[in-house]
Amino acid sequence: MINFNYETKFRLRDEDQISTWILNTISSENHKLEEINYVFCDDEYLHKLNVEFLNHDTLTDIISFDYSIGKIIQGDIFISIERVEDNAKDFNVSFDDELHRVIVHGVLHYCGYKDKSEADAKLMREKETFYLNQLVSN
């Protein structure tokens, strides 16, 4: 089950399409979905979580809490819409493209991909791009 929760005025335009895309991504990575809760929020909301749970006093676009066991995916993904908007401008991409990249980024973490090293970050980016293209082609 995929749940979309909103702590800001933002709303996804097509929750069903995004849910199907996420499910297909998880399946393509040979994992199974238990539950993912997406929470779309603002910078202030996500900053509080970042400080409280991760001891990071910085703004970020996404925080994910992974409760997966083996190949069964479960977790909470918090996304700051304000950070996504700013990053889209900084990276010269559309808001939707950046939002989708962040959405799939959290899922890929749950599937075991990391992004701390340069090599891991490169692979993560390749996977993000691959799955973004899957969304566009549907």
Rank of each mutant, 00 (worst) to 15 (best):
V39E: 05
N30I: 03
H56P: 00
T58K: 06
G70I: 03
E126S: 13
C41A: 07
N30E: 11
E52L: 13
N3V: 06
E52H: 08
S64N: 14
T8Q: 04
D76L: 04
S19Y: 01
E98S: 06
I79M: 03
V51F: 10
I22M: 08
R83S: 12
C111S: 11
D43Q: 09
T25I: 14
F40M: 04
I77N: 03
E15S: 12
E29T: 00
L123F: 10
Q134E: 09
A88D: 00
L49A: 11
D120Q: 15
K9Y: 04
N50M: 10
N5S: 15
F65P: 05
V136I: 08
E7V: 09
L123G: 07
L123K: 15
N50C: 12
D42S: 10
E128S: 08
D97V: 05
E52W: 05
D86I: 04
L132W: 02
F95C: 07
L99K: 13
N30F: 11
S80G: 12
G75I: 05
E126A: 12
V102T: 14
C41N: 04
S28E: 12
M1K: 12
D115F: 09
E7G: 07
E35I: 11
I72E: 07
M124C: 06
E29K: 01
K48T: 10
L123R: 07
S68P: 09
I26K: 01
N3H: 11
L59T: 06
N37M: 02
V102S: 06
E35M: 13
S27K: 08
Y45Q: 06
H47W: 06
F4Y: 10
S28N: 11
I26A: 01
S64C: 12
K9E: 13
K122R: 14
L99G: 03
G70P: 05
E85D: 08
S80Q: 05
E34C: 12
D43G: 09
F78P: 04
K122T: 15
I72S: 08
I77H: 05
D43S: 13
E7D: 15
V107N: 00
H100M: 11
R125K: 15
F40C: 03
I69T: 14
C41H: 03
N138Q: 06
S64V: 01
T25Q: 03
E128D: 10
N138Y: 00
K9I: 02
